[in-house]
């Protein structure tokens, strides 16, 4: 069966649920830091990157310049380069226009979900539509609830702590279907590095460094293994 935009949209529901309370909080804090409802919503529409938006409104509240905030945002969001780079393998021969649209929707959550789901989608064309669906669902929730949060300001208090766990639950389900015997060492290495680096470094640096280090070590090990196998085969032949 062909899989398309709607399929992706449906898969994005857990992300949408997880984003809602975070975006609400963002909207509320944005108002408290002196942004208007339109400005808060506009930031979510144009930037669509949670952590950097929270940092930015805090810096705006402290009166930082566009330069400082731009630079901080770049540092926090550098890891998106690695994610886009990794996603390219799904989209061979897809036009630049479509890729440009997909690019705007790449977040930690949509990337991890897409990487998992797109493996089961056959053609690059279908994959691009499914990816657009996933990204759109996540984007819609983020933008909508940023506006809602900014609009209601402090008037609403949600007292269900379960929302704090929604995105983590999504990641755990993906862990069950993504982690296999052959990539388990990379998972463990990245997890341990991330713990250590999160304790030591500020902000989101731990994500970028642990991902690059663990994926690099993992691929070096694969290279070494295939070399060993090739050499073994050679010794059989001789």
């Amino acid at each position: 069966m062909q899989k398309g935009f709607m399929y992706g949209l449906k898969q994005s529901i857990p992300i949408g649920i997880g984003y809602a309370p975070v975006a609400l909080t963002f909207g509320i804090l944005a108002i408290q830091n002196g942004l208007t409802v339109m400005e808060s919503g506009l930031m979510s529409i144009l930037v669509f990157a949670g952590a950097s938006q929270f940092i930015a409104i805090q810096l705006i509240g402290q009166g930082a310049t566009a330069w400082i905030i731009g630079l901080t945002t770049l540092i926090v969001n550098l890891r998106h380069i690695v994610m886009s780079f990794s996603m390219l393998r799904f989209f061979s021969k897809i036009g630049l226009g479509k890729l440009a649209t997909i690019a705007h929707g790449i977040t930690d959550e949509s990337f991890v979900l897409s990487s998992n789901i797109l493996q089961g989608v056959l053609t690059p064309e279908e994959r691009s539509r499914v990816a657009l669906g996933i990204n759109s669902g996540a984007y819609f929730s983020w933008v909508l609830f940023s506006f809602v949060g900014a609009y209601i300001g402090n008037r609403l208090v949600i007292n269900f702590s379960g929302f704090d766990f929604a995105l983590l639950a999504l990641f755990i389900v993906l862990t069950v279907s993504t982690v296999k015997k052959d990539n388990l060492p990379v998972y463990i290495l990245a997890g341990l590095l991330a713990i250590i680096l999160k304790l030591l470094l500020p902000g989101k640096w731990y994500l970028l460094i642990s991902v690059i280090a663990a994926a690099a070590v993992g691929s070096l090990m694969i290279k070494k293994n295939t070399k060993d196998i090739v050499e073994e085969e050679k010794s059989y032949e001789s």
Binding site: L88, R89, L96, D108, T178, V179
Partner: peptide, 30 residues
């Protein structure tokens, strides 16, 4: 997307990009 579109990746780079999702998953969860 702009720089590496339609480029073939092989060997080290190929396994690197395939391992990024699982590594990021770990770094987000653990």
């Amino acid at each position: 997307f702009l720089l590496f579109r339609n480029k073939n990746m092989g060997g080290f780079l190929k396994s690197f990009v395939e391992l990024v999702p699982v590594a990021l998953l770990a770094a987000l969860v653990i």
